[in-house]
Design a protein around this nucleic acid. Sequence first.
DNA 1: ACGCTTATGTTAATTTTTTGTCAATTCGCA
DNA 2: TGCGAATTGACAAAAAATTAACATAAGCGT
Lengths: 212, 212
Amino acid sequence: MEEKEISQAVVGRLPRYLRYLGELRDEGIERVSSQELSDIMQVTASQIRQDLNTFGGFGQQGYGYNVGYLYDEIGKILGLNREHRLIIVGAGNLGQALVNYTSFERRGFLFRGIFDHDPKVCGKKIRGITVRPMEELADFIREHQIDIAVLTIPKTSAVEVAELLAACGIKGIWNFAHVDLRLPGHIQVENVHLSDSLMKLSYNLSSAAEEM
Amino acid sequence: MEEKEISQAVVGRLPRYLRYLGELRDEGIERVSSQELSDIMQVTASQIRQDLNTFGGFGQQGYGYNVGYLYDEIGKILGLNREHRLIIVGAGNLGQALVNYTSFERRGFLFRGIFDHDPKVCGKKIRGITVRPMEELADFIREHQIDIAVLTIPKTSAVEVAELLAACGIKGIWNFAHVDLRLPGHIQVENVHLSDSLMKLSYNLSSAAEEM
DNA sequence: ACGCTTATGTTAATTTTTTGTCAATTCGCA
DNA sequence: TGCGAATTGACAAAAAATTAACATAAGCGT
């Protein structure tokens, strides 16, 4: 099905398009041109057209783009038209915070289970979901056909757990642990390295300070 | 001081170099060549040399790089040699999770205050830090010389609060709210858009599935 | 001390990404 | 229905990022 290879740079911009299109739609706006979007989003109109054309001709010459249609199409490209079943591995503060984010559920990302190593938190309920011991992880993934595991555990155990998840047939890992996971290529890994992000900010602060 | 413009692509890789160098250092390894790093990190040796040379000649021909020295130098480039004073704005799950991350403190990112709109959480203590009402925000920033504000509030109020922070003279904002902040250029903004990241993962899952 | 080996720093080539341009198509109005 | 304005999709150009190549400098062993 896949013809040309699509760069991650383009994919990375799609969620932002989706967000702005959603806002326009909520304002009742039906059509938008690449130039108008360009003004709102502060990117070149050329890039918008180029990006959208990577996936198909969603616009019409002389008219522009239909906001609702384009919103839906980008949603489909991002796989938001189907439901994803998730588990959280690591019921610490961050894990709990993510479970409590209801906006993910609205996008079709359904939290089905929470797992933790610590017997003291097992049995506890977070937003109606019981925290289970790690021993039940493998069976749970298979029984509930879990697609995505959210890894919110310390780096020390992350590699080991990731390999266990891989062996259980998980499709994707949303990794918040501060390590690079080396897994078979068919398993998708998306990293959120918070400390890297904070260091970038720190760099830009220093850099801005030096310019004066 | 700044001569050439340094691309964010390079800056974005520095934290990862730092992480691997830290690991090597902890293993007691004193020297490393770009080729060895290349093997470990799965990036080209050429890119490593190119990246490091952006900031100066840290290596020595025929020898390689001294792990400890390079680690320290990258740390300095990232501004980790000086302390940053932070406040959290939004004492929800995510805000609390971040305060509880002790690894930030070890890097010199010191949480000095937590603020929240909700009177019910004000007065509560998180890791010894009292949650204060938003009314005290402006004075607190000035009195404690806060550099960085961590924005963990819903998007509806984020823009308004960001402008308040800007008016108080904040230097940088670590933004977890799902909006683009438009602030004066001298204020550095680093976005962590979690839902964007999750959508990327979702895309890559769909994309991988189609290839079969 | 000398020569061989190693591995950087640097420049050049290549690839990728972004931006600019324009013919072609559609809309909207008279 | 026809004509001018608007706007895409495609292609070309420019810029940026990545990779390759190599001359040069330093280490290391004899």
